[in-house]
Simulated scan of single mutants.
Amino acid sequence: IKKCIDQLKAEAPQKHIQNLNNLINSSILEKKDEEKLRDIIKALSQNSHEEILLDLSKLEEEQFNRYLKEIVEAQKVYVSLKHNNSSDLNLLRKLKNKVAVTQTDEMNELYNKISDELVNRDQIIQQIELSNNQISLLNDNLEMLSNEVDELKRIVFEQTKENDSFVLAKKYQEICQEYYENEIERTLKLISEKCTKLIRNTYRKENYITRLEISKDFNVNIFKNKEKKNISQLSAGEKQLLVAAIMSTIIKTSPRNIFVIFDTPAGRLDGEHMVRFYKNIMIDTASQIIIMPTSNEINEEVINSIYSCVSDCYTINYNEEGYSRIHKNRIFDKEWIK
């Protein structure tokens, strides 16, 4: 490979001469440029062979150079391996000498120990094979017994099918009843918790009602801390807020999507409770709500609190002749601008 590379280097001038001759023969140069090239060719011809022996391409020349580089690297690796191998041989010789001087009794003891272990292993393997055979036999017996049991179960089921159907139906009924009662208890507890929070946010008096409970028989009990309060002690407006809060919580807890109509909803409420009712309870009760208040049940503060939630507004006027007239986009005597 080195000789080939040397030959390629020697051929380089001749290749250049060929390329220059091809350039002259192409007739694209001026005469003075041709004369200069001929002088260059003459100078190159003095140090070149008369003919090209290998005539390799550039890619082939690069491949030769790569081969040479790989051989040089391999040679370095070989020298390193040879050095390491010599060190390993020296280490093996030392170990061999140590083994040679080891006492014979220790070697015999180790040999006997290994022999005993091999014998024990063979015995254990035989025991495992025997146990596997016994397990296989027991599995066969178990399968046969299982088939007999399944057949007996089938016979018993055929004989008692009618009674079993009644028992299963009874159990199913009991399970459904238990689930029904549990769901009622869970739902009432959820409604009680949500309604308590709603009532506490709506009542003007702070901590007036701290807990509301709805029992399984649907009786409503209210507490102030641990003290049970009598609902009859509430004012008319407070009772109206309590009922509205319970109804609103039931509707929001239900998975049904229904619309709600409030007819004269705030007749017994004062100004502050009226605003709290519209803001906390009414506008959040359902996805669609229809309010039918009288002029005394809505004021400017209420309008401002629910303005962004209202889609359409109508005023119905009843005249003395017994006819009603509907005015769209009016809230009693004021225009409703949306």
Results as ranks from 00 to 15, higher is better:
T187C: 10
I24P: 04
I24D: 04
E193T: 15
T210V: 11
Q18S: 05
R204S: 09
N84P: 01
I289S: 07
R256A: 14
L92K: 13
D312W: 01
M247V: 13
S192D: 05
E70N: 13
I135W: 02
D140S: 07
R38Y: 05
S305L: 06
F262N: 13
S311I: 00
I258K: 15
D39V: 12
H49V: 06
D270A: 08
S146R: 09
K15F: 05
N84H: 12
I1R: 10
L212D: 08
I17M: 02
Y111S: 05
S87D: 14
Y67F: 06
E335C: 01
Y78G: 06
I289W: 08
I41W: 04
Q63N: 15
K96S: 11
A236E: 15
A266C: 09
S80I: 14
K3N: 06
S254N: 14
L138K: 09
N329T: 02
I331E: 01
K161W: 03
Q46M: 09
L56N: 04
L269Q: 07
G271R: 14
M282Y: 07
I114V: 08
A74D: 14
M282Q: 10
K98M: 00
N141G: 03
Y172Q: 15
N84C: 06
I114N: 09
S311G: 00
K98N: 10
L53W: 01
K153I: 11
C313H: 05
A100S: 09
E34Y: 02
N319V: 06
N47K: 14
Q126C: 00
I222S: 04
E106Y: 05
I283D: 12
I250T: 14
N19R: 14
L234Y: 09
D6Q: 03
N141M: 01
N147T: 10
V302R: 00
Y318P: 03
D33Q: 09
